[in-house]
């Protein structure tokens, strides 16, 4: 299902005038974004900024939005199935069917992506072994740790070799060594021309992994550019401090002081 179109002037993902509200609450306001092949987009923003709503729209989970979403030229509202075929999605802290073994679960996933069973079986085994789960192939996942489940989820998002990969906090629960593996994996996938949409709160990882950072807050894009261009705009500093400058209305150090003050200013300790 690889997209043969290598024309880098044509965006792989195009969000045009994207609006979404739940009742009276506007979650996304007029998002316009063009993403090109081989880009690793770090999609960051504070809690409730609209990150996961964007991801859900891109994955075809939410279809009642205003605006246009094109993936490789296909309108997601008109043909969600075609778009879903091109996308690999690794959800955040997702549930698994725990009573299945990883092998069974991934065979189900591969089947839904319409892969040839012979091909997918081999691929699943190789990937599970590479992630160190070779010894747990036939063990039900209700015994798995958070990190082991996350590995299975990662495989389930990559199994069909998608041209676009959407990762929502893919490192949660992984140990330090697995984090290194996944970061390296993201680099390798991007080099092969895959487009990666990386959602995270971990600024240091986003800073290292992404070549373009999109920062949203309260449903609107505040900044969009490479880490270097953001630094030029906001002054030298880590992504963490740039993030704080753009999204926080208060001085965060003052907030910490206020928290400490809570001990001092009270009249007496309540029992």
């Amino acid at each position: 299902m690889m997209q043969a179109d290598n024309d880098s002037t044509k965006p792989v993902i195009e969000l045009i005038g994207l609006n979404k509200s739940y009742g009276t609450r506007q979650v996304l306001c007029d998002i316009n974004l063009s993403i090109y092949a081989g880009q690793v987009i770090g999609y960051i923003g504070p809690n409730g900024a609209g990150k996961s709503t964007t991801v859900k729209i891109l994955c075809g989970l939410i279809s009642d939005f205003e605006g246009t979403v094109l993936v490789n030229g296909v309108n997601i509202q008109q043909d969600p199935v075609a778009v879903k075929k091109m996308i690999g999605y690794v959800p955040e802290l997702a549930d698994l069917y725990e009573v299945l073994t990883p092998l069974e679960f991934l065979e189900l996933m591969a089947g839904l992506y319409q892969l040839d069973p012979a091909v997918s079986k081999l691929r699943i085994l190789k990937m599970l072994q590479a992630f160190g789960l070779g010894g747990n192939l036939d063990q039900r996942m209700d015994t798995f740790s958070k990190g082991m489940r996350q590995k299975v989820l990662l495989i389930s998002g990559l199994i069909h070799n998608p041209s676009i990969i959407i990762l929502d906090e893919p490192l949660s629960g992984l140990d330090a060594n697995s984090v290194i593996i996944v970061k390296e994996l993201i680099n390798k996938l991007a080099k092969e021309g895959k487009t990666i949409f990386y959602c995270s709160h971990m600024m240091d990882v986003v800073e290292k992994v992404s070549d373009r950072i999109v920062l949203i807050n309260q449903g609107s894009i505040l900044a969009d550019g490479s880490f270097e261009s953001l630094q030029e705009m906001m002054g030298k500093g880590s992504l963490e401090s740039i993030f704080a400058q753009l999204t926080s209305t208060d001085n965060l150090r003052d907030t910490a002081s206020e928290i400490m003050d809570a001990f001092r200013q009270e009249g007496g300790i309540h029992e």
Partner: peptide, 12 residues
């Protein structure tokens, strides 16, 4: 509800 995250993003 697990179907939502597991099955719905698949091309079905």
């Amino acid at each position: 509800v697990r179907d939502t995250v597991i099955l719905l993003p698949k091309p079905v």
